[in-house]
Design a protein around this nucleic acid. Structure first.
Lengths: 239, 239
DNA sequence: ACAAAAGTGTTCAGCGTACACCCATGC
DNA sequence: GCATGGGTGTACGCTGAACACTTTTGT
């Protein structure tokens, strides 16, 4: 039966695609590359590419990110497998099965093009439409997943630099969810969760130029949030 | 660069693996097949196999399930992508990337072997160890995922036949989580979630031979659970 | 003095937990 | 009658939402 003859079937290509998300200026942004080659030459797409023979999907994801966008050795890159897209016809060239990842970054450097990508740039989430292949869908799935995981995991710290204030952490939630949260209650909930954040001793920072300096925190060892931080839609957003 | 030459790289094989879970006699069981061929001939494994050229992973999963275990056209089969396992060396023959699925079934028929599988059988979850390839890990991941999704989705009905009582639904939670739940409170929580279950008009059924006949319910249209049904460990299990 | 941002305190409604109790059926 | 399982009622504690208030800084 099937198995031993490596060339018995039309070969499959295996690729990775990355939905790299970050927060810039209080808005969710995604990293896009302009395709330098057919198909979809000139169109914007998620960074990604083919697996090499000795790579896992996770390794390939990091390599492609470095090649196509210049983001190598990024500190605090959170990579998370989303799902695999395998519908026939997703790539006009051949049968391509793509393992998609969601990646989260704190406010990052400017990317540069490279490899198959003629240029790379951060794009506001809302403007990232009409992408190549089925990347619109992958991006939407990534956003859904990240929004949901903020509720019951400590994922939000992956959007923050190594040291951050509770105000910054709260902005992560407010930006991704598009809702305003009550600051006192947010503070208590976060601090009441053991291992979510830990204070950096003797550090304080001014955030908006004015106001009381905020205590600085680091991400703690916890990964899950019990009880969860539920998304309770208040109306609108704050000023 | 890469892309157009289909044979430029060592080809990848793409497979699917299925962790098919069900409840039998109040215990979690998983569907295993005995491998008829090398590698791992004679060892137990999750059902699965190679993608055909014109199949999506979901289609292949259903086909392999039918071929290897005789479970074709199973009513109420819930298929859900888990993640993709792509580490080099997971299969000694060649480079195999496997898309893993978790599948949930109500109390199902006996399987039979077929295809690559010399036999197939339901195995209590605890006894499903030392599986072929990395299937121990896939199975553990499936169980974790299912346990977590019971909390905030309506997934539990996928373990129940089309019509079920609230007692049966509660047993799903108690079996998967290994905790006892308070019946009155469980009942209210489930009924308070719009679209989780809907009563079947004028139907009632005796469950244990004795006792008051229970109202019969169907799964409703809802998929998410707001608020979630949190796993609050009470000690021990009931009689 | 004022504005802005961090942080504290307090109230109150609602939910979830626990448990007592009633109902319907088989033996 | 009694055991068994389904279903209802209720009291209490705690959490989370809302908002008033204090503290610390820059201008």
């Amino acid at each position: 039966m099937h198995g031993y003859d490596k060339y018995a079937f039309e070969p499959f290509a295996v690729t990775v695609d990355l939905a790299v998300l970050t927060l810039r200026a209080g808005a969710l942004h995604v990293l896009l590359v302009e395709r330098g080659q057919e198909p979809y030459a000139g169109r914007w797409a998620l960074p990604g590419g083919f697996l090499l023979p000795e790579e896992s999907a996770e390794t390939a994801a990091r390599r492609e990110l470095a090649e196509e966008t210049g983001l190598a050795d990024v500190t605090g890159l959170h990579l998370e497998q989303l799902r695999t897209y395998s519908e026939p016809g997703r790539d006009p060239r051949m049968r391509v099965v793509s393992v998609a990842f969601a990646a989260l970054l704190p406010d990052p450097p400017e990317p540069r093009g490279g490899g198959d990508a003629s240029q790379a740039r951060w794009t506001p989430y809302e403007e990232a439409v009409d992408l190549a292949f089925d990347h619109d869908r992958i991006l939407a799935d990534a956003r859904d997943r990240v929004g949901a995981k903020l509720e019951y995991t400590c994922l939000a710290t992956a959007f923050c630099p190594p040291e951050f204030t509770l105000g910054e952490l709260q902005q992560v939630y407010e930006t991704v969810w598009g809702t305003a949260l009550d600051r006192p209650n947010f503070r208590r909930k976060v601090l009441a969760t053991p291992g979510f954040v830990e204070p950096v001793p003797g550090a304080a920072r001014l955030t908006g130029g004015r106001g009381k300096p905020a205590t600085v925190y680091r991400a703690g060892p916890a990964t899950a949030l019990h009880p969860p931080l539920l998304r309770t839609p208040r109306e609108g957003r704050p000023a």
